[in-house]
Amino acid sequence: MRHMRLLQNVLETTLGRPLAMAAVAATLAAASAVAGAQPSYPDKPLRLVMGFAAGGSVDPMARTITRMLGERLGQTIVLEHKPGAGGTIAVGSVVNAPPDGYTLLLSNPGPLIVKPQGDPLSKLSAIGRVADMPLALVVPAGSPFKNLQEMVVFAKANPGKLTYGSGGYGATTHIGMEMLKHEAGLDIVHVPYKGQAAATPDLISGRIDMLLDGWNSSIPNVQSGKLRYLGVATLNRSAIKPDVPTIAEQGFPGFNAALWWGIWAPAGTPSDVVEKLGRELQVVTQTDELKNVYKQLGVDPQSSTPEQLTAFVHSEQVRVQNLVKDANIRLD
Rank of each mutant, 00 (worst) to 15 (best):
G278R: 02
S205R: 09
L211W: 11
V313W: 13
Y229F: 12
D272V: 00
D243M: 01
F145L: 02
Q250I: 00
I65L: 11
A22L: 10
I89C: 06
H314L: 14
A97Q: 00
E80D: 09
V138D: 15
V313Q: 13
E150L: 15
G128T: 05
H3M: 07
G16F: 03
P201H: 01
R207Y: 15
A157R: 06
T246R: 01
V283H: 02
G36F: 09
F312E: 10
L46F: 03
V94L: 08
S205W: 12
A35R: 13
L203I: 06
A53P: 00
S40Q: 13
S122K: 11
F252A: 03
L19S: 13
G74A: 07
F312M: 07
H314W: 07
K156W: 08
L162Q: 03
P134M: 13
P18K: 13
G214A: 09
T305P: 03
S32A: 14
Q149M: 11
G167F: 06
T66D: 04
A126H: 11
E289T: 09
N292L: 14
G231R: 01
E12L: 10
A184C: 09
A171Q: 06
T163I: 10
Q8M: 15
G167L: 04
K194C: 08
P116K: 01
A233F: 07
H190T: 08
I208T: 10
L211G: 00
V274G: 02
G165C: 12
D272R: 04
A29T: 07
I113D: 12
V91D: 02
W260L: 08
Y169K: 11
L73A: 05
P144E: 05
D187T: 14
T27S: 11
